[in-house]
């Protein structure tokens, strides 16, 4: 249990405590995960956060990284969507980490959405919840909002078809409640709701409602059809209560429990139990004010060495404090490392 989880997510952090706990986690994974022990093969105590070794995010697609420890109780296997052709990332969930992860996401989300429990409408299908022992990244992201939900509604009759949104469910929730949450993967939320032709009676039912839309998954597909944040948010917020809002969060299956919602000033913030660094792709030095590959660290991962992961997402760490008042490292997310063309004749 991280001591830092006991404090508010965006309060002043004791960096020495973070470093101590991170060093303990490195040792924990070195002892419990053979592959990690081979990669991080030197026994040392790191004196700065920048020195904490990372695993490259691509390893989670190629190795089943699991850390065994006394009393470990395995839960489901979390699988990412496979968008790069390398297969999905696989992250083993365990009971003790899951508790910490739920506490973490709840605290983070409360900072953006408040404490009040509301119905949660998920723009997805419930089907994949029923698959044995596995959980898709899409549903895992949706379920991070569960602690804020009084009721759960899945809106898509067919999870692969955004046009299958069941507007009757929306109508019923709107009839019974003035406030609710809607979560969807960015692309699906656009297709199923923002760009959909909403029946006129549903439009009327939604008018003036206070809806907090939450989405994640990235903008790549929307950029390809020239939909920017302003257009996206505008389409969702049309005719809603003035206190409605759209929250875009960044997260990945290899960082379960730590999500990075965008604040009112366009930044994302690391909570006290996490840290973000940007690394030069060539020297791997930590950068401030320059674009680098994001390294995400957290104190929540016990069952798999996800405590320090070098992603293929690009971002800039911004110095100084944010007008939103949240402390902790702030950064801009800038997209993915661009793909390279591979020339050759063999299948690699």
């Amino acid at each position: 249990m991280s001591e830092l989880l006991k404090q508010p997510p965006y309060a002043m952090r004791d960096d020495e405590l973070f470093l101590r706990e991170m060093n303990a986690l490195v040792e924990h994974h070195r002892r419990g995960c053979t592959d990690y022990g081979r990669i991080i093969d030197h026994d040392t105590s790191y004196t700065t956060i920048e020195d904490i070794p990372f695993l490259h995010v691509g390893l989670f697609k190629r190795l089943r990284l699991e850390t065994k420890f006394g009393g470990m109780k395995k839960l489901r296997l979390l699988k990412s969507s496979s968008t790069t052709g390398d297969g999905p990332s696989m992250v083993q969930l365990d009971e003790s980490s899951s508790k910490l992860q739920e506490e973490s996401t709840t605290a983070i989300l409360q900072s953006f959405l408040g404490n009040k429990k509301r119905p949660l409408l998920i723009v997805d299908g419930a089907k994949s919840l029923r698959s044995r022992g596995e959980l898709s990244a899409r549903l895992a992201a949706a379920l991070t909002l569960k602690p804020l939900a009084s009721d759960l509604f899945f809106l898509l009759k067919d999870p692969e078809d955004p046009a299958s949104l069941d507007w009757k469910v929306v109508e019923k929730v709107a009839a019974d409640h003035d406030e609710f949450l809607v979560y969807g993967f960015t692309w699906i939320l656009w297709l199923a709701w923002a760009a959909a032709k909403i029946p006129s009676d549903i439009k009327a039912a939604l008018r003036g409602k206070r809806i907090h839309f939450v989405h994640s998954g990235g903008w790549k597909k929307l950029e390809s059809i020239r939909v920017d944040r302003r257009k996206f948010d505008g389409a969702l917020m049309h005719n809603l209560h003035v206190e409605s809002k759209v929250v875009d969060f960044y997260g990945l299956v290899e960082q379960v429990g730590v999500i990075y919602p965008m604040c009112e000033h366009g930044y994302r913030h690391a909570p006290a139990w996490a840290e973000v660094l940007a690394r030069d792709p060539y020297s791997l030095k930590s950068l401030t004010g320059q674009t680098g590959q994001l390294q995400l660290l957290n104190l929540l991962s016990m069952g798999a060495p996800c405590h320090s992961v070098l992603t293929e997402d690009l971002g800039v760490i911004e110095p100084g404090s944010c007008p939103c008042g949240r402390l902790g490292t702030r950064f801009h997310l800038q997209g993915r490392v661009p793909k390279s063309e591979i020339r050759g004749c063999a299948n690699v």
Binding site: D35, Y36, R38, I39, D41, L55, H56, V57, G58, L59, R62, L63, P281, Y282, L284, Q293, L310, E312, V337, P338, K339, S340
Partner: peptide, 20 residues
Amino acid sequence: VLPQPAIASNNVMAAQLAKA
């Protein structure tokens, strides 16, 4: 010479995979 960033990143991963 600087390789494309995706190649550099893949090599960081490959070296770790190889060690594992």
